[in-house]
Amino acid sequence: MMIPFLAVVKKELASVIRDRTIVISILIQLFFASFSSALLLGMLSLYDSDTIMQFGGPGIRVGMVSAAANPLEAYLSERGLEVIVFETVLDAENAFYQGGVHAYIAVPQNASDTAEIKLYLPDSDAVSSLIRMVIQEPLKRYENYLRAQNDIEVRYADLKGKPTTSYEFIYSVLLPMLMFFPAFVAGSMSIDSLTEELENNTLQTLLSTPLTVNGMVAAKIFSAVILSITQCAAWLILLQRNGIDLQNTAWILLLALIVSGITSTSGTLAAVLLKDRERSQFIYSLMLLAAAAISTLLNVSPITTLSRLAIGDYYTNGWHVMVFGAFLAGLYLLLLKFSRRLIV
């Protein structure tokens, strides 16, 4: 019983490796990972004033024209910008055209409780949006200061913390994507592999060998899962070698395994019921979308579970993974019930 099973697994894996198709899949993941790690993240940081300040902050010079002492000046310096005070607007303007300052702010004399200040920016889109990005925070502080003058208190305004963009991105987007994309591919692959046999009429021949329908289906799912889990393991190692701190790696790997089991089983199920590739792939994609939606609604999303396992969340443990295991078992039983349809 075991030998024909392994023979099918071997055939499946060999065909994937021979066709070099898996290379494309890995390429996509590599593409995504490399894009996201530097470019997308760099893009996100472009809109994150902290990151801008880290790299180019001290080089930005802002002129300030103000008759009386103004807290805005202190706020700007505290942000890390170089503030140059001018006596008159004319001086500031001259400095601007001579390259002394990149932008300047003019605060009118009669600063009542509502203040109207003037901000002069260069015409270049890139520079001016950069400056607007970095002076946003001092302006908001100044705004809060003015509010305080009006006896309006803004709560929680003095919190600091660390910029979250890359943290959130790595654990809630990059890691789930790297762990679940192979699973998504595994599902598609199971459909392709089964419908190809169906549409080329090779399934009957295959079943004339000492192999049951269920054995054949199981072998196809098994090989898809092997491929996907190998990729996941490789990604985990790569991520850790790149200094990304991952907790609960064993559970993460198990979760990835179960999820690819779920996708390949549901893919196979779709293929068994619909018997052609076009519709199966379509329904499979829709099913995944619906499953993602439902699991999020029920608060058992595998994505969240994965992120929480990786950051070492106190309340998340192996039992959360087991929930998906139980679901997989149920799905597989369902498949066994329907697999008979392949013969007739």
Binding site: T114, I117, L119, D123, Q149
Partner: peptide, 15 residues
């Protein structure tokens, strides 16, 4: 007026 006391007028200066 008191909730949003600060208004910033933005001007662009051509080179």
């Amino acid at each position: 007026e008191s909730a949003f006391p600060l208004k910033v007028e933005i001007y662009y200066l051509g080179a």
